[in-house]
């Protein structure tokens, strides 16, 4: 185990493949170039190797912290508030048509 401050070298315990990177790029909707895929394969491997110290810890009895605050039940009253002006909203759109945002055809049904 490293002390967490050592520069990251040494054995890569979790090799990551080009195919993994390409799969993740699809999930992340990034049209990466081949050069980017190559570079990211190495970068991700290095960072994950560093994270191996954390991945190796036995923390079964330790609950996760999703959130640093002990807050509960932050609720808002069901009251209507002002909406945005449509012209202002659509002015930001790359392409708008007929009061709506225009997008290319959708092939992947979700």
């Amino acid at each position: 185990m490293t002390d967490g401050t050592t520069p990251i070298t040494g054995p890569i315990r979790h090799p990551i493949s080009r195919a993994d990177v390409e799969h993740v790029a699809r999930l992340a909707r990034l049209a990466l170039t081949d050069a980017e895929v190559e570079r990211l394969t190495a970068d991700l491997a290095a960072v994950l190797a560093h994270a191996a110290d954390v991945a190796a810890l036995d923390l079964d009895g330790v609950p996760p912290t999703a959130h640093p605050l002990p807050l509960r039940n932050v609720l808002r009253d069901d009251e209507v508030r002002p909406t945005l002006d449509r012209a202002e909203v659509l002015a930001a759109a790359p392409v708008a048509e007929d009061g709506r945002f225009r997008v290319p055809r959708i092939l992947d049904p979700s």
């Binding site: 994270a51 954390v54 923390l59 999703a66």
Partner: peptide, 10 residues
């Protein structure tokens, strides 16, 4: 990874 990191946070 993510789950473990959250426990480290604790």
């Amino acid at each position: 990874y993510y789950g473990k990191a959250q426990r480290v946070r604790t």
